[in-house]
Design a binder for these strands. Structure first.
Length: 250
DNA sequence: GTTGAGCGTT
């Protein structure tokens, strides 16, 4: 990521669109006004649902300014979008933790983002086959398989923290808030609390005897593969217009 | 290699 062009890099805070809206939709909407550097739609950390707003960042700050100042009203899917300047820089996970005091409740799950350049998919393989499966490993499969340290609670390894502190973070001092555990898809075992109480007959000691790493909360698979990465038909369209940004993909 | 857990909605 071109990082921030400068500290002034402005992102537009856009809201008012439907939950079904995808980054690419916004991208194609705003692209005509300037090169889009990034479109990011935060999603709830747990539910994975879009939080209702997005950040559209122009590569050139001026474009953002123009869009904003022009007061032009953008409508997407019949809804008028509200546009503002983004207030702060994106918070990093760490920052979020810091706010845990208050934001503890609204941690947000991986967000939907849209980066120009995402041109992978050479037609080397028959992409028409199973899109889903393919999508999964479309991005450096190997990489992904190994570095499970990065991607948070996508589907399998639920605890982002677990990964992070493994060695990466300099100061592994994890906050005491154990509520940190991520997307726990309502594990059943968790839901039968009082049961054991009056369960005089079934309680066999030997069972409880084997302490099996109850520590790892397994979020039974993410809600759905609402990765956002999924099928993005229009993307290509948008992308084509901006094939110039090749910068990353990650 | 610079992150993707950035302002929501009382």
């Amino acid at each position: 990521m071109p990082r921030d062009r400068n500290d002034n890099s402005v992102s537009l805070h856009v809201s008012g669109f439907k939950d079904s809206t995808r980054p690419s939709d916004l991208a194609s909407l705003f692209e005509p006004h300037g090169r889009i550097a990034d479109v990011y739609i935060p999603k709830d950390y747990y539910t994975g649902r879009p939080r209702g707003f997005a950040y559209v960042q122009y590569y050139d700050e001026e474009d953002a300014r123009r869009v904003y100042e022009s007061g032009e009203s953008f409508t997407l899917d019949g809804r008028k979008l509200e546009i503002q300047y983004a207030q702060g820089r994106r918070k990093t996970p760490n920052q979020m933790r810091g706010q845990s005091g208050r934001g503890d409740r609204r941690r947000s799950r991986s967000a939907d983002r849209y980066r120009p350049s995402a041109r992978r998919y050479s037609r080397s393989r028959s992409r028409s086959r199973s899109p889903v499966r393919r999508r999964r490993d479309s991005r450096s499969p190997v990489r992904r398989a190994r570095s499970r340290s990065r991607t948070p609670p996508r589907r399998r390894s639920p605890s982002p923290r677990r990964a992070g502190n493994s060695r990466r973070s300099p100061s592994p001092r994890r906050l005491p808030s154990r509520s940190r555990s991520p997307p726990r898809r309502r594990s059943i075992s968790r839901e039968r609390p009082s049961r054991s109480r009056s369960q005089s007959h079934g309680a066999s000691p030997r069972r409880a005897a084997s302490p099996r790493r109850a520590a790892s909360p397994r979020p039974a698979a993410s809600p759905r593969r609402t990765d956002g990465w999924g099928e993005e038909p229009k993307v290509s369209e948008w992308e084509e217009g901006n094939g110039a940004y090749g910068s990353y993909g990650w």
